[in-house]
Amino acid sequence: MREILRAESLSKTFKLSTKQQRIEHTKQRVRTAVDQLSFSAYEGEIFGLLGPNGAGKTTTLRMLATLIKPDAGDALIDGYSIRSQPEVVRSRIAFLTSELKLEDFFTPDYLFDFFSNLHAVDPIVARQRKQRLFERFGIDEFAQVKVGDLSSGMKQKASLVISLVHDPAIIIFDEPTNGLDVITAKVVTDFLSELRDQGKTIILSTHIFSLVEKLCDRIGVIINGQMIVCDSLVNVAQDQSLEDRFFELYLKATKDSRSGDAA
C-alpha cells in the first residue's frame, strides 16, 4: 500500500484572548490545539480521526486542507508539502466541512461549472462528471434550483458533489454525517465506501463510534491534541468494543495529563 499522506509532528497553537482566559480560569496565553501529531494514511483506505469535541480533529483537518498553517511540523500529501506547496496540495484534495458553504444565490449546475473552471478541469470531462454525479445523488432534478432554496440534505449532497469536481485523490471530510437524516447519511457513507473501492483515500473526523466501525480501515484516536493510538480498527479495539476501548484510552490519557500537570 502506498503512503499518500504523512503528517509529521503537526502542531498548532491558538492565542487566547483575555476574555477567554477569564472564562476558562486560566493564565495561559496560548492553547495548544494540536500537539506534535504524526500519522500516515495509505492509498485506498478510509482513515478516521476519532476524538471528543475540542480534541483538535478539525484543526488537524484544516491544516491538511491548507486553510491554516501549522506552527511546527509538516504534512506531505501525495509528496507535496502543505507548507511550501499549498496550491498543489489543494489541487489534489477535496475538503468538506459544514463551515464551507456554497453561495445561496447560485444553482448547483452553475457552481459545478464554476468550481470545475477554478480547478481547470477540461470542459468535456467536467460535463460528463457533472452528469454522472448529479444523477448518482439525485441532484439533476434540482440542478437549476438556487442553493438557498434546497433542503439541507440536498445542500450537503450538492457540496459533496461540487467538492469532487476535480476528481481528487484524497477526500478530507470533517464530521461527514453531522446534521444529516439517516437516509442522507447512508447515501453519504455508502458513497465514501464506493470512493475507497475506486482507490481514493478518505480522511474523516468524527466522534461517532458506529460510523468509525462501519467505515474506517484505520483510525487515530486524538485526545487533547495528541495522537494516543494510531492503528487498524481491529488493533485499536483489541477484544473490546470500540466504545469501551475509547473510554479506557480517554481515562488513561486525561489521568496522565492531570498527573503531568501536578508534577
Binding site: 486542507a65 496550491e87 489541487s91 484534495i93 475538503f95 458553504k101 477554478l118 480547478h119 481547470a120
Partner: peptide
C-alpha cells in the same frame, strides 16, 4: 459577506492563487 456566510473558504481550498 462571503466571509460571513462561509463561502469564501470554499474558494480558498481551490488551487486558485
Amino acid at each position: 459577506g462571503e466571509k460571513e456566510r462561509g463561502t469564501i473558504a470554499t474558494l480558498l481550498v481551490t488551487p486558485m492563487r
